[in-house]
Structures are given as structure tokens and as C-alpha cells.
Amino acid sequence: MGVVVRLFAVALIVLYCVGPFIWQFITSLKPSHELTTLPPLLPEDPTLENYLSVFRTHPFGRIILNSTIVASLTTVLSLAIGSLSAYALAKLNIRGKALFLAFVLSVSMFPPIATVSPLYLIIRLLGLRDTWWALVMTYTTFSLPLTIWILTNFFRAIPNEIYLAALVDGCTPFQAFRRVLLPLALPGISATAILVFIFSWNEFLFALTFTSTVKSRTIPVGIALFPGIHEIPWAEISAASVIVTIPIVVVVFMFQRRIIEGLTAGAVKG
């Protein structure tokens, strides 16, 4: 392949992936009267008004806070619960490992729509409707398969002798986990944490069903139900989209290798 062809291909791929975001960004800078005139492409009178209004006239700050809290709690819980199981599956002598792993994998294929209605009834019964906990509980469960799967692979990759050495040195199985295995699986933990965070940050169906007010509404629902008076407020939606996309872009660029590691650990070894 010639250098020119290669460069052209790279440019094409990059444009394909990034193009829609650029347009979104451009839109977010346009004052509302410019939205309805297409040439020119670029805003003639760029403004940050849309960004301000996302926070001023809409409770977007609170929505972002909800998402951050829900995603963080989910990540912590899922890692705490999942790493214990993964450790047991990788290093301890328990029966029915294969069965448990098979079950874990099948949970990852559950269609969310299949559990949303009974979960809704359960959550209503528990009085958890429109709370963070309804989402945290659900997201933790549905991110557990990924967590367990990736971390089991990471724990398995740690030589068994290291685990045995910890036992001989006087550790209980839990101490061996906390003091030796867990620190060694840190790359896996962070890869998993990023994936779980992204999953919870993006989830829509459960969030749409379990939340009803701004008290617990998360970003995807906030954007999907963005209120407009007559017209759809495209410029504000664009601004809100840009706001929530930026942290993701930052995470992706910072942890690109980790994310791919996690995804492939999840898929290739499966």
C-alpha cells in the first residue's frame, strides 16, 4: 500500500468515526436562529449560550451528578463483589466452577427487556422507585458477568505459586486475596472499572423505567427526554451531548489500551 492510500484510509476512518461529533459540536455553538439556515456550515456568530442554558434553564447539573454517583457506586460494588467471585473461581477449590461461569456468561446475554418489568414491580414494592439505588442494584448485577469474566482471567494469569506462597507465609484465603492477588490484578481491575463505568454511564432502558424525576434521572434519559416548548431544542441537546461526550473521550484516550485489553480479555478468551 502506498503512503498516500494509507493516509487517505486513515483520514476516512477518522472522519467516519469523528464526523458526527464535529457536526454536533458545531451545532452546539450556533445561536438558535442559525440552526434553520444551512449554508453556512460554520456558525457565523458562535455562542456559548446553549451550554449555559443546559445548566441554567435545565437541571443538567443534577442529572450529571446522578449519573456520576450511580456509575461510581456501581463500579465500586461490582468490583467488590465480582473480584471476590473471580478470585474464588481462579484460585480456590470450589465445586461447580464451570457451571457458575456458564451461568455468569448467560446472564451477560439476558435481554434487559426481559427483566425490566418484574424488576420494576420489585422496585416499586421496595419503595426504591426514582432512587439511585434502583439503578445501582440493577447495573451492578448486569455488569457482574463482565467483571467476573475479566477478573477471573486476570487472577488465573497470576502464577499459582504466588498464591500458595501467601498461604504458607500465613495468610488466610481472604488475606491472600487482599494483600497479594488484588494488588497484582490491578491492571485488570482498572480495565474492568472503566468498562463498568462506561456501561452504567450509558444505560438507558432501566434508567428510563426506574426514574421519573430529576431526582434520580441519568444523562441518557435526560438527553432523550430533553424538554422543548415547540421545537426540539437541537442546539441545547447538542451542547448537552458535547458535555457528556467529553469525559468519555478523555477516558477513552487515556485508557485506550486498558479498554481494549478488557474487551479482548472478555471476548477472545470466551
Partner: peptide
């Protein structure tokens, strides 16, 4: 390759809702 991989990851990583709104506008 690192940069291109990261760029390629972006559409996957943003919320589906955000991309749907983005495309609705396009």
C-alpha cells in the same frame, strides 16, 4: 495505531442515546 484505536473507540463509548440524538439531527 494507538491514536487511531482510541478514535475508533469513541463512537462505541458514547451513550447510545447521545449518538441517536446526534444522528436524528444529521
Amino acid at each position: 495505531r494507538g491514536i487511531v484505536s482510541a478514535i475508533v473507540l469513541v463512537p462505541w463509548a458514547v451513550p447510545t442515546v447521545v449518538s441517536a440524538k446526534m444522528w436524528e439531527w444529521l
